[in-house]
Simulated scan of single mutants.
Amino acid sequence: MTPAVRAARPAPLAEPAREDLRLEVVLGALSDPLRLSIVRKLLLESPETDRSCGWFGIDRPKSTLTHHFRLLREAGVTRQRQYGLERRSEVRTEDLDARFPGLLDLVRAWTPGSLLG
């Protein structure tokens, strides 16, 4: 993403500051398989771009998706921006890497059953 495009983006919605990120809150947000898969998809397929809920192709009610995306944002895992009626999300990679080095590497490497199997 070019600097001009980045500068033209709307301000992010309310989120915790980097220094206020807490490991137990971040891990709690990532403990749900759907939220973990959302974050993995962003990290692996769209690390430089924010994405709308529809991009994920998740077959769940809109209210359910709104709940999951809000929890990720409030935990400090993702950043959301409002574009008209659409909210787009991206992982707060720099903030999470600074506070919890290696955490996102584990998320990227995770596959269902890999930690238990």
Rank of each mutant, 00 (worst) to 15 (best):
T2C: 06
V5R: 13
L13N: 00
A14G: 10
E15P: 00
P16F: 07
A17P: 03
R18L: 08
R22Y: 01
V25W: 05
V26F: 06
V26R: 04
L27I: 09
L27Y: 04
G28C: 03
A29V: 10
S31Q: 14
D32L: 09
L34D: 12
L36K: 15
S37Q: 13
R40K: 15
R40I: 03
K41F: 13
L42K: 10
L43Q: 02
E45T: 10
S46G: 14
P47G: 09
T49E: 14
S52N: 13
W55K: 02
F56L: 12
R60L: 00
R60I: 01
K62A: 11
K62E: 14
T64L: 07
L65N: 12
T66P: 01
R70T: 15
L72D: 03
R73Q: 09
A75Q: 12
G76N: 08
G76H: 10
G76Q: 09
Q80A: 09
Q82S: 11
L85R: 07
L85Y: 01
L85G: 06
L85I: 02
E86Y: 01
E90F: 01
E94M: 07
E94V: 08
D97P: 07
A98K: 04
G102I: 03
L106K: 14
L106D: 13
V107D: 03
R108I: 08
R108A: 09
R108S: 08
A109G: 15
W110T: 00
P112I: 03
G113M: 07
S114M: 07
L116C: 11
